[in-house]
Amino acid sequence: MLSKGLFKKPKNELEAQHRNKRKTDPAIPSELCRSCPSCKQLSFTSDLENNFHVCPKCGHHFRINARQRLNMIIDQDTFVEQYHDLSSNNRLEFPGYDEKLEQATLFSHESEGVIIGTGKIDNRKVALFVMEATFMMGSMGQVVGEKITLIFEYALKHQLPVIGYTVSGGARMQEGMLALMQMAKTSGAVKRHSDAGLLYLTVLTDPTTGGVTASFAMEGDIILAEPEALIAFAGPRVIEQTIRQRLPKGFQRAEFLLEKGFVDAIVPRSTQKETLTQLLTLHGIPKGGDQNGSI
C-alpha cells in the first residue's frame, strides 16, 4: 500500500491543524517519519506500513484506524460494509455535542465510531465489527451500539461467526443513559448469537476501556489482545485519583490481563490473520459460501 498521507493535502483547516500538532520534529515532515512513543526511535512511515504499523525496533504497536485493520485481516476486496452512513443525532441536546460530531466526522473520515460488515478471512466468510479510535475515541453512543447489535443479528440470521476489534473510551456521555443502555442491548445480541452455538472472537486493542470492556469486549468466546494494549474497566487515571497511589508498571496492559487469566492469548499484528484463520478452522468454519451466507 502506498503511503496514504504522503502526497495528500489537508482537506480543511481542522485536518491541517491536527497534522501540525502531530509533528514531532520540525525538521522532518510528519508524513515521512514517525517517532515511536515507546522507544523514541524514528522510523520511515513506509517501513511502518510494511510492518503492520509496528515499530521495527521495539515492536510497539502504533494505533491504526479501522480501515487499515480491515486491510490487514480481510482477503482483498471481500469486505462488504453495512450501514455505512448511519450517523448520530443529538437527542439530549447536549451542549457542544453537534460540533464534536462534526469535528469527529471530518477528522476520522467516518460517520461513526465503528465499521460493520462481512468479509472473508482465508476464504471463510465472517461478520465483522471494527471500532474506530479517531471518532471520539471509539466511544459508544446509540449508533455504535446499534451497529454492533445489527451485525450480531445479521450473523445470527446467516449463521456466521463474528470477529470484533475493540478500541474505546467507553460509553459516550453526551448521549446520557441512552448510551449506557447500549451495553445491555449489545450484550443481549451477543447472548442470542452465542446461544445459537455461533463463534464470537474479540481482539482487544489499545485502549479498550469503560462500558465497552464491561460489555461486548469481554463477552467473546475467545478473547485475543494486541501486545501492551491498555484493557481496563476504570482507566488508570481514575483509579489513581480514587485510591491516591501510583499504579504498578504494566498494570492493565494486555500482558497483565493474560497473567490474571482474562485474555486467551496476546497476538501481535503480524500474525493476527494467521491466528484468526487457525481459530476459524478449528471451529469448522467452512471455506467459500455465497453472499447470503449459505454454503
Binding site: 464491561a214 469481554m218 481496563a232 474497566f233 476504570a234 482474562f262
Partner: peptide, 8 residues
C-alpha cells in the same frame, strides 16, 4: 475482572 463481571 470488574469489566468481565459486569459484562457477564
Amino acid at each position: 475482572g470488574q469489566g468481565l463481571a459486569i459484562a457477564t
